[in-house]
Write a protein that binds this DNA or RNA. Structure first.
Lengths: 337, 337
DNA sequence: GGACAGTACTGGACCGGTTCAGTGACGACA
DNA sequence: TGTCGTCACTGAACCGGTCCAGTACTGTCC
């Protein structure tokens, strides 16, 4: 079956190509009568628009881009991204937009990929994750003029649109929870310090422990399960080990829990564990993990919506999506005296 | 800066548009001298091809499609897909192909999405996962004539190209391992029976236990951690509980391990656990999980390569990617007498 | 020296839409 | 009655490439 084009519709409806285009796009310039006739013919012929041809005219790609600068293997271990991508996707598909997803090994390649996308007009906008302090991507994207939504804190966004979750408040809540249970010495197993949200949580952790009068220590990792485990081992081997540990993601918390098991330390009797980024993992461990929970799918959807707003002319702005809420489970409890 | 087109290059190099096209594409029809001149001008002007314009001419989209028919939330919990997508991506980006990734809630929507992609020529080919027995997607994709690579067993592929891992052999290896350790009663916590690879493993499990003289039982689940836990509880509450359990993915194995902890059953002393789809999860639990391990990133890469082969005229064929290998860790051991 | 082949190029159709300038018919208004 | 504006529509340019048919020129061979 040959492809149906508007030229064919025009021929059958006895009008010009231009009139068909107006009719199908709901634009003025044709009578209601003609419009109805054209629509009927289009329906009969099962016409569908050719997005490539449209793109060539209107110079839009109807695609958003997302680049993840991590090796594929480690991505698979972080539940966050798949959920986030799912959230983006839900909003995009409503408007027939596609998501171009790329994984690149490092920062250089990521910058090059934005340049390429911009020049080839492959994407109408991009979503940028894992914002770092003085992130080189921000000036580049400004220079390219590519509509951008940053997933991260307004303090790092340098005037670009961003969507953020309030880690500071959430961290306060987590530390309060630990303090109220009666703990006096708390540790934080954090991600890499050059990640913006890690840095922000570092600050919030310092402030909250100061406020509640807890003694505190921080170990930085690369977010992997392996390093979560070794950080936990390191903390517990100290002369004065913490009685509560707050992890920066759920994978490390699970690893930490196992490490405690290895060491013969009981949770929550001897040590309280709290995870960040609640996922199914937190519910299947034994004991189940108390976590700072937020809706990652919804987060992705919010980001996509803001990117559409930007295309429609919205001014850059910072949008608070939500504040992670403490989800209390079995892994947190009062310290054993 | 205005966009640079081949027309501009042609003007500056003093040749026609057609000649420029030949020169840039390395096709015959221009002298080496002219080609060099055109290339030089193109370089100076920083010309990049407009993929949309090319697509309109050559009727190719330079995009492959992948549809995942699961809610975004559950996807995030299965490490498999992110790794698989990463593997696809690696091969695609080498050839400047893009991956169109869609998540849909169910089977109907998936079929509709293939129809739409095919009519709009949005994709040059598709990768299909989670093949079921009598899968309705197979006749549809044949009808649409969309180049397709199935991720699944040749016995289900109905003549389309497929890439598979040899679950049958792997299951035999897993059961042998259990038998050699001295177990007499083994259980399998399986995924949904309508999934092709689940069905194949069911058959293989039955054959292997028969061959080794073990008594066997199977519980079917939806692959989720929750159901992995409840299946484990159900198995262990029997009058004659198994002393070894083989799970269909790693998430359920982790959940099963936690359940044993809840029940006060020790692993591996009392029960041996084996996971499928080795990921970081299997290494961070305590005890670490014995798993049937295979390279999911490489699997994705292989699938992408086969899809390119198909576009280049390869005949449909079944390709064995690899056989999952037993990765022995702490969770398997001889049964306590 | 004429037929023929091969090389290096030109010009233009084409892909399938969007969009703009122009046109004819009609009604309203001075 | 002439002029103007509006409506409904046409025709063609345009987006930026690909690719085919045609042409001019050179060289070869009989």
């Amino acid at each position: 079956m040959a492809r149906v084009t508007i030229r064919e519709i025009a021929r059958r409806a006895g009008v010009s190509k231009g009139a068909v285009s107006y009719a199908l796009n709901g634009q003025p310039g044709v009578s209601e009568e003609t419009r109805a006739r054209v629509l009927k013919v289009a329906e009969e012929l099962e016409w569908v628009p050719n997005p490539v041809a449209r793109q060539l005219s209107v110079a839009r790609s109807e695609t958003f881009g997302l680049i993840l600068a991590r090796p594929a293997q480690t991505l698979s271990e972080e539940p966050f991204y798949m959920a986030f991508v799912g959230g983006l996707e839900g909003v995009l598909s409503e408007r027939s937009y596609a998501l171009a997803l790329r994984t690149v090994p490092g920062s250089e390649e990521e910058l090059a990929a934005y340049r390429k996308w911009s020049r080839e007009k492959r994407v109408d906008g991009v979503v940028v994750v894992d914002i770092k302090a003085d992130d080189p991507r921000i000036p580049l994207l400004k220079e390219l003029g590519l509509p951008t939504v940053l997933v991260g804190d307004p303090s790092l966004s340098e005037g670009l649109t961003c969507v953020w979750t309030d880690s500071t408040t959430a961290m306060g809540e987590a530390v309060d929870h630990v303090a109220e249970l009666g703990h006096r010495h708390v540790a934080r197993v954090a991600g890499p310090p050059d990640h913006g949200h890690v840095w922000i949580r570092d600050q919030a952790f310092a402030a909250a422990t100061r406020r509640t009068g807890l003694t505190a220590e921080v170990v930085h990792t690369d977010f992997s399960g392996d390093q979560g485990a070794s950080a936990t081992r390191q903390l517990m081997s100290s002369a004065t080990p913490p009685t509560a540990i707050i992890y920066d993601n759920d994978l490390m918390a699970v690893a930490g829990l196992s490490t405690l098991g290895n060491l013969g330390v009981r949770c929550p009797d001897e040590v309280t564990l709290i995870a960040w980024d609640d996922s199914a993992l937190c519910r299947i461990t034994h004991p189940t993990l108390t976590a700072m929970s937020h809706d990652v799918v919804g987060y992705g959807a919010e980001v996509a919506t803001r990117l559409f707003d930007l295309l429609e002319g919205a001014e850059p702005a910072a949008h608070l999506y939500s504040t992670p809420k403490l989800q209390t489970r079995q892994s947190s409890g009062p310290p054993r005296r």
